[in-house]
Nucleic acid binder design. Structure first.
Length: 440
DNA sequence: TCTGGGGTCCTAGGACCC
DNA sequence: TCTGGGGTCCTAGGACCC
């Protein structure tokens, strides 16, 4: 049996832990640049705020309905997440951390009533971290996901499902008839792996509910869609195709991209921005002990600014596999210089590291352009590694940017283009100076 | 005025090989 | 007029996830 544990409205719930006055009120958390709603409390959902909806479209609800908007505080959410994950991990021999707010548990070998275990997990996480969770249990990961959806919906919208499955829902304990009933009440788009496009095509073919999908012909689905959907259907029927992955491979690409606080037109400003993004991805790269063989850079104008001329170039720069911030910045900037054109309002940029390999493997390899007879090769490599380790340690301790390559700050303009975060809450759990203070 | 950021996997099609 | 066939590798693009 598998469980899927997830935090209800994660970002909003994290904010509420430290500001209980937000409880019961409509709250949204905004994306970088305070652009769009990326998390909504149940009250905000009831007001009709949609996922990823632009803030300016719902802003009027601030006055008319008391909607509260906060800037995303990822440092806080990341820390709360790791506390929650640590607690959840105690309940099963294997855990897969699937996203910032969800994990799968594999109950193989676990004895006892899984519903009781699920309820205990919920209680403990709530008491120790303040975060409300839902738990779905089923014989496959896809069914556990679906059970989680049912647990959450039953809690939020009474009457949709039997009240007994609210908060913790265990499909493995149900009769076929009970399960069919739930699947009949659930839209096919709620299934993990069935997105907007697939939903539209399935509906067109008369497949509207989860039960319809379970009864559909797999081989024709495979032909019309893909093996992905075929697996999904098999999983819904109880045949496990996906295992809990408790030792995920390192990422195959690492990206940093962001929209600017205001459009940038000058190469100098873009150079500074892109250099900053390159430092960030380089740090992430070293954190997973990888090296990159290529750097992809893009800049883009805004398709929403209809009257602006559009230009959205991208380029991939090859490098000798490295994790050296200086090399990666240099490659990114060279790429930028090659594709930049004056006269455009660029609103967003990004740097992506691809062609990743393991650091250990790349060590000792010489590239075509270096000969083994050069005495300095190993010394240089060693010196670079030590320098980067020192930079990472300093930035870890004093905050990202404490030590930086000069090109990231040369113009001193980065702040001007930085994303707006006008409503960010304190980083209560990760910065001493921002800790919550209790007053008598 | 204002429209997220970070990932994965699959597939189709082209280049290239013998 | 007739214009191989089977294989691999790579890339771009699409769909999905949170």
């Amino acid at each position: 049996m598998f469980a899927l544990v997830d935090v209800n409205n994660m970002y909003v719930s994290c904010e509420r832990v430290f500001r209980p006055s937000l409880i019961g009120r409509p709250v949204v958390v905004l994306s970088n640049n305070d652009g769009a709603c990326i998390a909504r409390s149940n009250e905000a959902k009831d007001l009709g705020v949609k996922m990823a909806q632009p803030w300016f479209e719902v802003r009027h609800l601030e006055r008319s309905a008391g909607l509260i908007a906060l800037s995303a505080n990822f440092e806080l959410y990341g820390d709360m997440s790791s506390r929650m994950m640590t607690l959840a991990a105690r309940y099963a021999p294997r855990q897969e951390i699937y996203s910032i707010d969800e994990c799968f548990l594999d109950f193989e070998g676990v004895r006892g009533d899984l519903v009781d275990i699920g309820r205990d997990l919920r209680r403990t996480v709530l008491q120790w971290t303040g975060l409300p969770t839902s738990v779905g249990i089923g014989p496959t990961k896809t069914l556990a996901k679906l059970a989680n959806h049912v647990a959450k919906t039953a809690d939020r919208k009474p009457g949709t499902y039997p009240s007994s499955v609210a908060q913790v829902c265990h499909f493995g304990q149900m009769s076929r008839a009970e399960l069919d009933d739930i699947m009949r009440r659930t839209e096919v788009g709620s299934v993990w792996g069935v997105g907007r496009k697939t939903t539209a095509r399935l509906t067109e073919g008369g497949i509207r509910t989860v039960l319809d999908l379970v009864h559909a012909d797999v081989s024709s689905l495979r032909r019309q869609f893909s093996v992905v959907l075929e697996k999904t259907v098999l999983e819904l029927r109880g045949t496990s195709c996906l295992d809990v992955d408790d030792a995920p491979a390192p990422n195959q690409q690492i990206m940093c991209s962001r929209s600017f606080g205001e459009p940038a037109t000058e190469l100098a400003a873009l150079t500074e921005i892109v250099s900053g993004f390159a430092s960030r991805v380089a740090e992430k790269l070293r954190a997973q002990q990888s090296v990159a063989g290529a750097v992809r850079v893009f800049i883009t104008t805004s398709p929403f600014r209809r009257k602006d001329a559009q230009h959205s170039p991208s380029i991939t720069m090859l490098v000798r596999p490295t994790s050296d911030t200086r090399v990666l910045i240099a490659a990114a900037v060279r790429g930028l210089e090659g594709m930049y054109r004056p006269g455009f309002n660029y609103v967003k940029a990004g740097v992506m590291l691809v062609d990743l390999g393991s650091q250990a493997q790349s060590q000792g390899e010489l590239d075509l352009f270096t000969t083994a007879s050069e005495p300095s090769v190993d010394d240089t490599r060693e010196a670079t590694a030590r320098l980067m380790t020192a930079v990472d340690a300093l930035n870890q301790r004093f905050g990202f940017g404490a030590v930086a390559v000069a090109s990231t700050v040369q113009q001193g303009q980065a702040a001007r283009y930085a994303s707006k975060q006008e409503r960010r809450s304190p980083r209560y759990t990760t910065r001493l100076a921002e800790m919550a203070v209790a007053r008598a």
